[in-house]
């Protein structure tokens, strides 16, 4: 399998490094000659200096044999062009674009970019949802923000402590994916009793998240 990363800056470096380490056949395209040399030295990946919005450059990077192209440049218009050229001209099956303006996410989908990720939107979603719930240790948005996965700490006074899971009526679109107790991970079953200090992995749709958190922690969001 082959992945083309087109972009610049830290995100490009860390992704290139991660893919290289995992043994993925990765090609990197970055506009500056200096950055290209530096990246190739530090990551060991094959790096090409050039403008990835130019069809010839993508061709040279091996777009015809790539299964995924990631467009990570700072401008939305460039990332759209990269994905469209890859998808239309070189039939790359999967194209992923970083989007700055959250409003552009929708249009990227309409214009056949497989996945458009707006860091702005995901981050603001996390901040909005997390505001008020101190027990949430970690949260991430998945499926373009359609679902979130959170790690919730149960304090001693939390209403869910001592209850078997079957007594816990979570909202429709919420689910406990696991219970971390000490250094063990328990698979939630109906008879599992929750204990103070448990860390719960909560999977929920945004609409059900707040109700689920209230049920488990007793906290009102502020």
């Amino acid at each position: 399998m082959k992945v083309i990363l087109a972009g610049s800056g830290k995100i490009l470096y860390y992704l290139a490094r991660q893919f290289s380490r995992r043994g993925v056949d990765v090609r990197v395209v970055t506009p500056s000659e200096d950055e290209a040399r530096e990246l190739s030295r530090r990551t060991g990946a094959a790096v090409l200096a050039g403008d990835a919005t130019d069809p010839r450059v993508l061709y040279e990077a091996g777009a015809l044999r790539a299964h995924t192209v990631l467009a990570l440049l700072p401008n939305d218009e460039d990332n759209l062009a990269i994905c469209q050229i890859a998808g239309r001209m070189y039939r790359v099956p999967r194209t992923i674009a970083l989007v700055n303006d959250p409003e552009n996410e929708e249009i990227f989908h309409q214009l056949q970019v497989t996945t458009a990720i707006s860091a702005t939107r995901i981050l603001s979603l996390i901040i909005e949802e997390q505001a008020g719930f101190e027990e949430i240790a970690r949260m991430m948005a998945v499926g373009d923000g359609a679902v979130s996965v959170s790690e919730v700490l149960l304090r001693e006074d939390a209403p869910a402590v001592g209850l078997p899971l079957k007594k816990l009526t979570l909202p429709e679109e919420a689910l406990l994916g696991g219970i971390i107790r000490g250094d063990k991970v328990l698979i939630p079953k109906g008879g599992t009793h929750l204990q103070a200090g448990d860390r719960l992995i909560l999977i929920a749709a945004p609409a059900s998240l707040e109700a689920a958190l209230r049920l488990l922690t007793g906290e009102e969001s502020r």
Binding site: T53, E77, D78, L80, A81, I107, Q110, L111
Partner: peptide, 16 residues
């Protein structure tokens, strides 16, 4: 002056 801007704006104008 930038092709990618013109092409994106044109597509947004048509579709949206």
């Amino acid at each position: 002056e930038k092709d990618t801007v013109n092409l994106m704006v044109a597509q947004v104008a048509k579709t949206v």
